[in-house]
Design a binder for these strands. Structure first.
Lengths: 331, 331
DNA sequence: AGTGTTATTGCAACCGATCTCAGCAACCGA
DNA sequence: TCGGTTGCTGAGATCGGTTGCAATAACACT
């Protein structure tokens, strides 16, 4: 493969390099006849432009970073999946950055991406978004966040309506006859996680019942602890809402290992709508987030902002997915 | 941020551009005094080299593609996780490429990565590796495959000993008193998947029992179909080995929804050792693959090959993880 | 003192594009 | 026929580094 540069094509087509360049990136600036000829020659040689050289000169590339705390968490995995798709539909390449929740790493990734002239980035945070940190970067205003952002509306965001989601879960449970409904908090320390908890607290109180927070931790073991707490109670709730599907899995698993059955002994509803949930035992009833939409929208928002500087905050509607982990209360 | 190029630093440090370059990339070629001065100045300015410009000139970058069929599958997610870590420990950036099992996409990613001067790539395939396709690319000999490769020893591979894994599962089950052991085949059409199946067939036959293949499909529904098949049998096996954890999940879930309990009614063992398994209901007994090691080793192999052209084929030992989904046979 | 290393640094071409400017031909109206 | 557009293409600087080669300095040895 004798290095295929633009000059090679130019020579082969009998035109100047700049004409070849135009033929590709600004077709209307070249006589259509010439352009077709060039394209044909290029095709024949199997030539493609070097994205590196392009990025260097244009000062903007097509690499876009997706920063997630943990790709092992199916929520982020599903997000990554739809985002890769959305990305290369639009000619971008997704670059996966896993932070393990370390803000320093986030910073590191940002600088790296800046150096690669990434046109923008997507952040799915594990902790509340630090607006200041975001601004330290050239494309600080070109980041879309998959979470709510506090006190700064200059960053586009995509989220799902937490309150509405919790409401759906609560209504479903009420409908089944449950009145004592517990809550186990989520993995992430994000605004979203906070919002879900707040919604639970508020809505429960509003309906006249007392909130029962089984665990408010924010690590992976919240589910296990929540289950233990549940087992210790004299008068445990008949249903549990988990802040997200992973926690729900953990709760059910821990409960199961102590002989408590779902939904016979206690109903559990999750939050996320992971595909995995349908293969859980029992299949998980959950509040679905439109993850695929979130991915596409995130990229759209970023592009839109790049174009006209507009900053949107999209809030999507969740949806209840009733499967097998909920039923009427025991007794 | 007034564009920070190497010339800016050079001027600020009172030396020539090339000296700055050397100070960074070939320290021994610069008087240590000078180098330290340059580094200090650069530091003060907050300067970092442009990876793009570097890659363009050197014709080799630090971007390394990880090609997986589906990041949503926790096995690949865990792989991606350890690989990102292994990668940036060594100064590479992992670029996630999701193919959805489409070989055309794999090709596309390869060319893209070639254009980015990726020094090598890692492939975790979903279908048997097509050696010819691998060779069409400049770095065709610089790909590490997480699977076995047929009839071509020129590409480095990392795998786990399938036969040994199945043997561990079988021995565990035999030890518990099971004699009728079924098998549900896996998601991927890889050599590895094939090997596991073959091992099951061979080892079962050798022990004098008849193999019971509940499903040999290679899609996500193999688990569900396997479970149905199981339910239709007059004399079903007392234990099931699933070709991988995801399938095991599906089997248990499908079984559960039909009222069959694990491990009370039937034991199930998976293959992968996903972290998720410990949070399943019941916690999954499984053959663990050392995924973290695989990630690190894959990168090491690639680097080694880059350096001295050596091609290794590493086969790792699996390990049995006994959790709650297996017990003695019913009755 | 003269000559042969060796250690450092500067020079300038080069990697593969993009883009501004200028040149040139064809075309328009007066 | 001539100045003024317009359309298309070529020149050449530039993006931010790397690197072979030449130049200079410093040091060793006879």
């Amino acid at each position: 493969m004798p290095d295929l540069s633009i000059d090679v094509v130019a020579k082969a087509a009998g035109v100047h390099r700049s004409t070849v360049s135009r033929a590709f990136s600004r077709p209307e600036a070249v006589k259509s006849e010439t352009r077709e000829h060039i394209l044909r020659v290029a095709e024949g040689l199997g030539y493609t432009m070097s994205p590196l050289a392009q990025a260097l000169r244009r000062k903007t590339s097509t690499i876009i970073p997706l920063i997630v705390p943990d790709i092992t968490n199916p929520f982020f995995a599903e997000l990554a999946k739809t985002m890769t798709q959305a990305a290369d539909e639009r000619g971008y390449q997704l670059m996966l950055c896993v932070t393990n929740g370390d803000p320093a790493k986030t910073d590191g990734y940002f600088t790296a991406m800046q150096a690669m002239y990434a046109p923008f980035g997507i952040v799915a945070p594990s902790t509340k978004v630090d607006t200041e940190a975001l601004k330290r970067f050239a494309f600080g205003h070109k980041v879309v966040v998959i979470d709510r952002v506090e006190g700064d509306t200059s960053v586009p965001t995509v989220t799902v309506d937490s309150r509405r989601g919790i409401m759906l879960a609560l209504e479903h449970l009420h409908g089944l006859g449950h009145t004592q409904i517990g809550y186990v908090s989520g993995i992430a320390g994000t605004h979203t996680a906070q919002d879900r908890m707040d919604a639970y607290l508020e809505l429960t109180a509003r309906s006249g019942s007392t909130p029962i927070v089984l665990d408010s931790g924010s690590d992976l073991d919240a589910g296990t602890r929540g289950a233990e707490h549940f087992l210790d109670m004299d008068n445990p709730p008949t249903a549990i809402i988990a802040a997200n599907d992973m926690v729900a899995f953990a709760v059910i698993s821990a409960l199961g290992s102590r002989g408590v059955r779902v939904p016979e002994d206690v109903s559990v509803v999750g939050f996320d709508g992971l595909a995995l949930g349908s293969r859980f035992n029992p299949a998980l009833t959950t509040v679905r987030q439109p993850i695929a939409d979130m991915g596409h929208i995130a990229i759209e928002l970023a592009e839109k902002q790049n174009l006209d500087g507009s900053v949107d905050h999209i809030v999507l509607e969740p949806e209840l997915l009733v499967r097998a982990s909920t039923s009427g209360p025991r007794k």
